[in-house]
Design a binder for these strands. Structure first.
Length: 480
RNA sequence: GGCGACGUAGCCAAGUGGUAAGGCAGAGGACUGCAAAUCCUUUAUCCCCGGUUCGAAUCCGGGCGUCGCCUCCA
C-alpha cells in the first residue's frame, strides 16, 4: 500500500516516481495561484482542481503534504485595474482575493495549507535579488530596475526546451531600455509615478513577477520543492525564469519535478480573459452545479487540453445525476433492509468487486494521476452497486461497505456525492405512510389513487421506484 | 521560424506491443397498470501512407490537420 505515485516531469518528459510515502517525508507542493485583479474563469479553476485532486490522491496514498499557492497582489494588471477604479491596488487585491476564496470553496477545492501574498514577502524578495546582484547573476540598470542575466544561467531554456537563439524576443514587445540582453527579465521594476512602491537598495520600486514565486516557495515550504506546478502556459517564461533565479541563488535543484496542467479550450482556442472568450466562473456557477464542473474536468487527463462546450457540460450534468442516484438509491435500500444479514456468498462477491475497484482506482491515480481512468472505475462501481441493490440475498453491511467506498473514492477525485438532506423523522414517517397507501391502492388496482399518491410524494421530493419486491422510495436527486 | 502536445464511435474521452475503458446521446430487450430508474445487449476499418514485429491505436519514418508556448496569462 505504499507504492509511490508517478508523475510526468516537464523538465525531463519522463514519468518520475515520487519517493514512497514512508521515505518521502513531507511532500512540498507549490503551484502558481491567481493574480487577484478580477474574477477567475473556468480555465483557472481547471488547474486549481488538478492540484486539488493531486493533494487528495497523495493524502490517500499516505503522503504527508504541505501545499502552498501564491496570491499575486501586485503587478501591472493590478495597477491598471486600481487606476481604472481610482482605488488603491490593495483594495482591488482584497476584494478579488475574497471573491476568489469564495469561488474556490464553492468548487470544493480545499484551500492550500499556505497562501502567501506577494506584498507580504517583498523584503525577502529584495534580499534574494540583492544576493543575485552580488553574485553577478543580475544587475541594476540606470533607472533603478534590476534584471536577471538569463544567458548566464547555463540551464536556461531547458525546462521549456527553448533554443535560446531561436527565441523571438522583442519582436512584438518594445525592448526595455537598460537590458543587456533581450532575454533578461526584470527582478525589480523601478518606481513609476502613481504606482505603489517599496524601498530597495536600487531605489523605490516593486518586484517582478517571477521572483515572487521563487522567494515565497523557498520561504514558505523550503527547498527543494518536491513538485512545482501550474498551468502549462506558465512553462515559459514564468517557470523557466523561476528556475533560473532560484538555481542561481542556490545551485541545488529548485524543484524535483515540474507538473503542468493542460489548458482549457473554448471553441478550440485557449480560454483567456485577455482574449475575452471566457466569462468568470461565478457566472457559470449559476448555471451548473460545481460538482458537474468538477466531473467535467475529470473527463480528460490533467495534462491534456480540454475543450469546454455546452454539450460537454450537459453530459457532465447528466453524469452527476447518475453518480448521485447510485448513492441515494443505495441509501434508500439500506434503510429498507437495515440489519438484514445477507447470504455470505452474495456479500463476499460484492466485497470482492469493491476490492477490485479500489485496486483499479488506486492504480489509475498512481499512474500520472489518471483521473479519467479512475473516474471510469467509479462508474463501473456504481453499476456494481446498482446490481447489488437488486439482489434479494444482499446483506446490509456489505452494501454499506460498498457505498462507503463509493462515496470516499469520489471524494478523492473532489466530487462530493452529497448526503441525505437532514433526516427528519416525521417527514420520513409521512413518506412511508404515503408509500404504503399507494401500495395498497395498487393492490386493489386503483391506479388513479396510486398515481395521485405518487404525485403527492413527488411534490415532497420523493421518487418512487417500483421493483419486483415492491416500491422503493428515495429522495429526489437534485437536478442541476 | 524554434519548442511542445494532440488527431480513437454522433459528441466528450481513457488506453505507450497481444485483437479497443468510461460518460453523454441512440437502438433493441428485461422489468412494468402507467411512469421513472435500473439491469442486459448493441453502436469504432483507432487521420493518411510506408516500415519494424509472430502481433501496433500503441514503436520508427514521411505526410495532412488542430492546439499551446516563444508577449501578461491557470
Amino acid at each position: 500500500m505504499d507504492r509511490p505515485i508517478a508523475l510526468r516531469d516537464t523538465l525531463t518528459g519522463e514519468r518520475v516516481p515520487l519517493d514512497p510515502p514512508a521515505a518521502a517525508g513531507t511532500v512540498r507542493l507549490y503551484y502558481c495561484g491567481p493574480t487577484v485583479y478580477g474574477d477567475l474563469h473556468i480555465g483557472n479553476f481547471r488547474t486549481l482542481a488538478t492540484f486539488d485532486v493531486l493533494r487528495r490522491a497523495l493524502a490517500r496514498f499516505g503522503y504527508r503534504v504541505q501545499a502552498a499557492m501564491n496570491i499575486t497582489d501586485i503587478d501591472d494588471k493590478m495597477i491598471r485595474r486600481a487606476a481604472e477604479e481610482g482605488v488603491a491596488t490593495s483594495e482591488v487585491a482584497r476584494r478579488y482575493e475574497a471573491r476568489f476564496l469564495e469561488d474556490q470553496a464553492a468548487m470544493g477545492i480545499a484551500p492550500p495549507d499556505r497562501m502567501p501574498r506577494a506584498t507580504e514577502y517583498i523584503e525577502a524578495m529584495v534580499e534574494d535579488i540583492a544576493h543575485l546582484v552580488e553574485r553577478g547573476a543580475a544587475y541594476a540598470a540606470p533607472d533603478g530596475s534590476v534584471y536577471f542575466r538569463a544567458r548566464a544561467y547555463p540551464g536556461y531554456g531547458a525546462l521549456s526546451g527553448q533554443n535560446l537563439d531561436a527565441i523571438r524576443v522583442g519582436a512584438r514587445v518594445e525592448p526595455e531600455a537598460g537590458k543587456e540582453d533581450d532575454l533578461d527579465f526584470a527582478l525589480w521594476k523601478a518606481h513609476r509615478p502613481g504606482e505603489p512602491a517599496w524601498p530597495s537598495p536600487w531605489g523605490p520600486g516593486r518586484p517582478g513577477w517571477h521572483i515572487e514565486c521563487t522567494t515565497m516557495a523557498a520561504r514558505v515550504l523550503g527547498r527543494p520543492l518536491d513538485i512545482h506546478g501550474g498551468g502549462s502556459d506558465l512553462v515559459f517564461p514564468h517557470h523557466e525564469n523561476e528556475r533560473a533565479q532560484a538555481e542561481a541563488l542556490d545551485p541545488d535543484p529548485f524543484a524535483r519535478r515540474w507538473v503542468h496542467a493542460g489548458l482549457l479550450l473554448m471553441d478550440g482556442v485557449k480560454a483567456s480573459k485577455s482574449l475575452g472568450n471566457v466569462g468568470p466562473l461565478r457566472e457559470l456557477r449559476r448555471r451548473y452545479d460545481p460538482m458537474a464542473v468538477r466531473l467535467f474536468f475529470l473527463t480528460a487527463h490533467y495534462a491534456h487540453p480540454l475543450s469546454w462546450s455546452e454539450e460537454a457540460m450537459d453530459a457532465a450534468r447528466a453524469a452527476l445525476v447518475r453518480v448521485r442516484e447510485v448513492a441515494t438509491r443505495a441509501r434508500a435500500h439500506l434503510r429498507a433492509i437495515a440489519g438484514r444479514a445477507g447470504s455470505e456468498a452474495v456479500d463476499l462477491a460484492l466485497d470482492a468487486q469493491v476490492r477490485r475497484a479500489v485496486q483499479a482506482f488506486d492504480d489509475a491515480l498512481r499512474d500520472d494521476l489518471n483521473a479519467p481512468a479512475a473516474n471510469a472505475v467509479l462508474f463501473d462501481l456504481g453499476r456494481t452497486i446498482n446490481q447489488a441493490v437488486g439482489e434479494p440475498e444482499l446483506g446490509s453491511e456489505a452494501l454499506a461497505r460498498a457505498l462507503g467506498t463509493y462515496v470516499d473514492l469520489w471524494g478523492v477525485l473532489g466530487v462530493d456525492v452529497g448526503g441525505e438532506t437532514a433526516v427528519d423523522e416525521d417527514r420520513v414517517r409521512r413518506v412511508e405512510a404515503l408509500v404504503s397507501a399507494r401500495q395498497a391502492a395498487r393492490m386493489r388496482r386503483d391506479w388513479a389513487e396510486a398515481d395521485r399518491l405518487r404525485a403527492e410524494l413527488e411534490a415532497m421530493g420523493v421518487v418512487i421506484e417500483d421493483t419486483r419486491e415492491g416500491a422503493r422510495w428515495r429522495w429526489q436527486t437534485e437536478r442541476v
